[in-house]
Design a binder for these strands. Structure first.
Lengths: 113, 113
DNA sequence: GGATTAGTTAGCCATATGGCTCATCTTGAT
DNA sequence: ATCAAGATGAGCCATATGGCTAACTAATCC
């Protein structure tokens, strides 16, 4: 599960989430992305690399500019995991509800409303 | 957005994701949870604490046993963020499609610049 | 009461993270 | 040909993370 580790780790930093949010609106160069975050470029580059290693972002160099963009399926893996767990959790709550209902019915067995 | 930071950080560790997965099936004590992960209890407790600080898990002590359970809205915040970003990203791709179509049409009409 | 069980606290350690600066390299503009 | 711009590489630093052991507390069991 090292991939999920990397994906969620990427998402755990607000700078990187901001980069994702920005890239959701369209491709941008490292410089463009860096501008909004008052941070030295080498520091910022580390974030870009983290995003690339988690396969959320791809980039390629055109001239001296590196253009970055989101991968089409960037967030679906993370969403998939969350959705699966939530489903399990909710189906359990449903069963629990009906279990509680059953209990309630049994409880009412001798005093029907 | 320190809260999102903490949530995604919690999710970035496979031990903690396993705990969430287990808790999705129902409450469990710290001991129950720890058993499957060959790890010293104090190490494991740190994970539990991380999960509590990110408000994914709540626990309360009954006797000498600490019972843990998922919070009902545990994963919705993370899902919400992911869903918002994906929506932006996809609506942009839609616009881009029509933009490319438009370009193609113009290209056919006038030639290039 | 004494032993056992389930956590908890404290502290150690190696590595990872996230920031910085300074030096370098490549490309684009003049 | 030179210079500026956009990255990139190397390396420093403080703090955080994730593991451990050992010692302690508090509930339960015999």
């Amino acid at each position: 599960m090292a991939h999920l580790d990397r994906i969620f780790h990427s998402l755990s930093d607000s700078t990187r989430r901001a980069v994702i949010a920005q890239l959701a609106h369209g491709p941008a160069s490292v410089g463009d992305l860096a501008q909004r975050h008052s941070m030295a470029l080498p520091s910022f580059m580390k974030h870009v690399r983290v995003l690339e290693e988690s396969e959320i972002v791809v980039s390629r160099k055109m001239g001296r500019v590196r253009m970055c963009q989101l991968r089409p399926d960037a967030l679906t893996i993370a969403q998939g995991w969350l959705e699966r767990e939530r489903r399990i959790w909710e189906s359990r709550l449903d069963r629990l509800d009906s279990f509680v209902e059953t209990l309630a019915e049994q409880d009412n067995a001798h005093g029907h409303e």
